[in-house]
Design a protein around this nucleic acid. Structure first.
Lengths: 268, 268
DNA sequence: CGTCCCGTTGACGGCGCTCAAAACAGGTGG
DNA sequence: CCACCTGTTTTGAGCGCCGTCAACGGGACG
């Protein structure tokens, strides 16, 4: 039910430019026991290089998804662990009362589904926002690798720690930022440092989806975006699927501005 | 600067009763290569049983802290990893602008400092709320154990996953609950299921500390507690260091009541 | 052309933050 | 014992942000 009809234009445009350097050089051929992504920071690549001698065929497959496609759904038995290689994905949780809570936008290089190692069920739903490519490894294979290869475990632990830190940052953001600050911060997150002013950037989320991610209402998102546009800080046509940052410094100022000094700082 | 002078009375009272069963049977003697806690769910215990043959002396020490003592401080180089055996500890982060954000109250059985495995610095500050006992293992020893013993790695990963899930729940709570709901939920978290109505429960936090934990202001905490007391739902004298739940069902109703249906549920 | 969905804008109200003041407890020195 | 000071807690008044309700415009589609 999400409005992601903007994705065509996103793909037709230059959405590749916004990915971190290196994230997009995906190697199409799947070597024996090698992760196809061939990235130095890819933990699977490292794992399988080490244990390839035991294997006849690669444990890892590359797979692509189209926009709006669901990689896996919350509550489903965990079958695979994924690493996002290119594109955007949206992580969300459904609450018992039917509400949907966005967790975060996943960027290339991040691991999806590792949290299912504990109870063998995915704790959240992952949905493709753009066209995306992932590396996939079977859940059971991954457990075996973890048991056999402590180096991977350390990498996984490091990755989880990073996720945890990001999540704490989200919490701090929720507590200290106003709705305007959250929107500004969200737009900046989608704006890589190497962006020229006014450059067209993909925004493959509907207003409703943005609202879910930021924990505010649809109307508030609209009002804030309208004000940002009126103030010539950004440009973002409705359902255009993209946006431009016209005045990055003012946007950053809004994102940095905390809400409600909250008087807790007195005992710092 | 925290007001934790209430802790004397807490210790003098019966604060032991609120701990989960089993958490308090700490074995005072430190066997060679055994975790003194001797708990079946203690990952260190299991680790060292497995690798004890290599060791001449125990890697694990028991240590106690007094209320208000700091176990470690955010930004400090990571030297030890701790497991809380008894008592309450408060995890908090300092923000760049001087504000303090409470992360969570740590209960017995939880691991403290595992997140430092990545960048070798503690990402948060841990402060004892009550008198507490912990199991301690050196950071370098822990890394070595992780490298040698995949079973521990899996346990650590499982633990991190649990922490992550709890953190997500915190996020959902922040987005969906009103201030009253947060306070009610907080009090229920400190109320074990095996509690008789009106039983005295330790509340080793000042109003300011509660406000930090819940991301609301001191005054709001006061107003909400006053109303709960006026409505005969709880009892909580100022700086008494304890509270009583008089009407658990009404408290649970307040905690469960979500704020602002937020209209996002329409697309669930 | 009607329907549906998304996006936009306005009006209104409530929750909670801010500012302010006062009650209360604990400690210290006279 | 009392005065005094410091820090915590409580309560009140005001108001700004944001959620709610409502109406409207526009594009997609049958």
């Amino acid at each position: 039910m999400h409005c992601l009809n903007a994705c065509q234009s996103v793909r037709a445009e230059s959405h590749n430019r916004i990915y971190p350097p290196g994230a997009l050089r995906h190697v199409p051929d799947i070597a024996l026991g090698r992760c196809p992504c061939n990235e130095s920071d890819c933990m699977l690549s490292e794992v399988l290089t080490a244990s390839a001698s035991h294997r006849k065929h690669s444990l890892i497959q590359e797979k692509t998804y189209r926009p709006k496609e669901v990689l896996f759904r919350q509550g489903m038995p965990a079958t695979h662990l994924l690493i996002l290689r290119s594109g955007y994905a949206k992580l969300s949780m459904g609450l018992p009362d039917g509400q949907v809570q966005g967790l975060r936008i996943s960027l290339p290089g991040q691991v999806l589904g590792i949290e299912a190692l504990s109870d063998q069920r995915y704790p959240y739903t992952v949905e493709a926002l753009t066209e995306i490519t992932v590396c996939r490894i079977g859940y059971n294979d991954m457990v075996r690798l973890l048991e056999q290869n402590p180096t991977v475990s350390l990498k996984v632990i490091t990755g989880l720690n990073q996720t945890l830190r990001d999540t704490w940052e989200t919490i701090c953001s929720l507590r200290t930022r106003t709705a305007t600050g959250r929107v500004a911060d969200f737009l900046l997150m989608l704006t890589p440092a190497t962006t020229t002013p006014g450059q067209k950037l993909p925004l493959p989320l509907s207003r409703t989806a943005i609202a879910e991610m930021l924990g505010i209402t649809l109307e508030t998102v609209c009002r804030i975006l309208s004000r940002l546009i009126r103030d010539k800080i950004i440009e973002a046509p409705p359902s255009g699927g993209y946006f431009r940052v016209l005045d990055r410094s003012r946007l950053a100022a809004l994102a940095g501005k905390k809400a409600a000094a909250s008087r807790l700082s007195v005992n710092g």
